[in-house]
Design a protein around this nucleic acid. Sequence first.
DNA 1: CTGTTAGCGCTTTCAG
DNA 2: CTGAAAGCGCTAACAG
Lengths: 347, 347
Amino acid sequence: MSRFMAKSRSANRVTLKDVAKKAGVSAITVSRVVNDYAGVRENIREKVEAAISELGYISNRSASILASSRSKLIGVLIPSLSNVVFNNVLRGIYDITGPANYQVLLADTHYSPIEEERSIRTLLGQSPEGLIVTGGEQTNAAKAMLKASGIPVVQIMDKVESPIDINVGFSHFEAGAAVAQSLLTKSYLKIGFIGARMDPRTCSRLAGFKSVLTAANCLDSKLIITNPHPSSVAMGATLFRELMAVTEGDCDAVFCCNDDLALGALHECKKMHLDVPNKFGVFGFNDIEMAAYAEPALSSVSVNRYQMGRRAMELIFERLNNLEVSSNIQPSYINTGFELLMRKSTR
Amino acid sequence: MSRFMAKSRSANRVTLKDVAKKAGVSAITVSRVVNDYAGVRENIREKVEAAISELGYISNRSASILASSRSKLIGVLIPSLSNVVFNNVLRGIYDITGPANYQVLLADTHYSPIEEERSIRTLLGQSPEGLIVTGGEQTNAAKAMLKASGIPVVQIMDKVESPIDINVGFSHFEAGAAVAQSLLTKSYLKIGFIGARMDPRTCSRLAGFKSVLTAANCLDSKLIITNPHPSSVAMGATLFRELMAVTEGDCDAVFCCNDDLALGALHECKKMHLDVPNKFGVFGFNDIEMAAYAEPALSSVSVNRYQMGRRAMELIFERLNNLEVSSNIQPSYINTGFELLMRKSTR
DNA sequence: CTGTTAGCGCTTTCAG
DNA sequence: CTGAAAGCGCTAACAG
């Protein structure tokens, strides 16, 4: 029954043939008009266009993709939709795909490689012309599918060990190390770390941070407080209180794995009447807009999120337009870098 | 040349037939296994599944959609990707589509009805089974296409004058009025408004606000400062300074069209040493997480963004599962409501 | 510059 | 429970 309804719904859909009949031409001519082919006589084009708008014809993408194997579709996989960081990346992507008349197929992996693999399979079924994935922790099966697909694949956000194809990002390890170094330079000595979710990139940040503190003989692993739940300002406050409890106040700075956490920590500092930045330093990550408006303004690491998305998409298009040379492509890495922004929450 | 490459790329793609041959069955049997049809003998199913994973077969969605006219696709149109508000909505949508194995086609309209119309046409070409659009300001052509499509259409975010089909949202007019009323009740008398972007919903908020102040004989249109550029904390600071300049300080409260703006305004208040909330009240909109952590905590209007997305999607699925009665459907309105959150930025 | 023919990969329908 | 034939709506390739 419901199958019948489904059929009947599409039964009255206007097709190329309907338009062709109305305009008194062949189907292929209509196709040429729809796809903006140069060689169609002006008066015929007009007749066809009139028929199209009269009938309200909308071209069936599935049929078109099937016949031409050109989909104008780009698959994008991100770990979370409710994270500002990925919004900026997405804007970079959409700013390129939109004008080029490409559609984005967006999937949320919820930070799970298994879900990611499933989504990659689904997306690949839609014949995308390119794919953008986050980080380098794909399952082996996923990596195999990606390679076998033969389409440009960009891994973004992180510097990846051995890229599948193209890699656009920066080293979170180095960024974490740079923060630790900067805090040491400012003579903070008992530096803690608070982190939530602890996805691969956050872990790299922590690893870089630890490596510098270890080298300086300053690492105290009691001061590393993490938690698998999502980040939020509230979570930052909670983790910060935990840090203070564990250290009994014997701690003079904290590196927060992102600005939300840092904003929560800063809020707690105020409640505890901690003297920031003189007695206590706070460092965030990502440089979201609020960082500059916090009280005191939050030191943070600025990363080029928008650029990562945009560059990734540009590189896919470059590849698509250079299919001739596509046989001997080498994996490549584009470093989008990062920058430490020193504000009032550190000395 | 590039056409040849495109062909050759897909030429070596594994198809249903390849799997069928390998498993020694017919194509349709493989199709039944792929689509989890009940009636396939266990040993045959296993043989087919083995062949599938051995060959790395991925089903071609376009062919499937074309043959069955079932796409498992939902089109979603939002005015901006870089706005937290829509992220929460999207999460609500994806939380329902994901488990149901539906894919979302997401388009950004950049607050432009013309772009929206173009995107609707594109999306409709992919045979989505349902569509979610923002607000009620579609062009007439867009509305016509939507109605003709015969699929469930949900307009979200706002209460719409005459809904195309389903409407899930709340009245921004009433919300704006409620804020004005609340401010009056707290004995603020010279109340300003700052707003950026001024999309239809922001305008409704302002209209509601004005209607109450007019009734109370308190409206001074000099105190209404707006600007077509995007909202941001920085913009809030700018608009607030403008308000103060225009009024020469003769103003005792401001309703900001969203929390970003309000956070910027609050920051300016601090710089100007304005006594918030005693001498000056600040009201925001949306209740983003930072609102509660501002100094002083920001009064705001909480709206159920996540629920709007989620309900919209649930309603589409309900409709899809009740096709029999689909002939006599009436437009409907689901009110997701709003709530004033009184915090420390108002008396 | 326009049309004819064939087929993309899958599912529907009907037969066994 | 399984298969053969036909066709979804479009475009590639070639012909005229």
